[in-house]
Write a protein that binds this DNA or RNA. Structure first.
Lengths: 119, 119
DNA sequence: CTGACAGGTAGGAAAAATCCTACGTATAGT
DNA sequence: ACTATACGTAGGATTTTTCCTACCTGTCAG
């Protein structure tokens, strides 16, 4: 079994954790950082945090390079294009929605200005 | 404490399952369907599948409407805008990647030696 | 070489997700 | 009213995720 393994599988799984999404945000906003620099932000034992880094690494969302005795973790945004591609066919659905056909959604309704800059 | 619950939290969690992503794809490509129409595609007991539908419902990614004695499930793509918004700040990173400027990451990094004085 | 530091790995407990069978409820058809 | 259909929910077993405490290796400073 397990014939194929779509690339977005591990990506979605990695992004399912708020901790790992926060790691990506920190790497994006503050640049590459060593493990302890990142781990200090989270209320969790360091080995537990290392596990999160491993998940991100295996999803290809971060890379590491050794600098002295520490490993600098860096954001690898490339795989996120898969997420973008996954999302694409759904875009026309929420656009149709916003042009006001069947408007029974209005979950938050304030997302009218989310698509003014694309690709 | 549980201060707030970002809207993308349940969305990412819901999308973490290949089964649930496949449900969204089916609803997108084939339109609204009753539960048994969808469940037939998956090798799983129907109540287990209902659980997946519940997760999608609570994430706001599908809606249901009663039609006779069956419930038509329909794609609700609106919440996916949150995913798109989450993705946006990462886009410039993979663009820079393609232009081969990985070092730009460290430009904004300024954290190459912050580990010198960490607790 | 020795000690201190950075960080990965191992093994296991606890929590959560996933799946099942059994049962409950609402509707349609007779 | 009675039965069959279309689902949801309850309770529980199993698997997976998450987190912990050791423990190990590699590197820098002296």
């Amino acid at each position: 079994m397990a014939v194929i393994d779509p690339p977005e599988d591990r990506i979605f799984a990695a992004l399912a954790s708020p901790v790992r999404r926060e790691v990506l945000r920190l790497l994006r906003e503050e640049g590459a950082q060593p493990v302890l620099g990142l781990a200090g932000r989270f209320d969790m034992a360091r080995p537990s945090f290392s596990e999160h880094l491993r998940v991100l690494r295996e999803a290809g969302l971060v890379s590491e390079r050794k600098v002295g005795r520490q490993r600098l973790y860096q954001l690898e945004a490339g795989p996120l294009t898969h997420l973008r591609e996954w999302l694409t066919p759904y875009e026309r659905f929420w656009r149709e929605k916003l042009t006001g056909l069947r408007d029974l959604l209005d979950d938050m309704g304030d997302t009218l200005d989310t698509d003014r800059e694309n690709t």
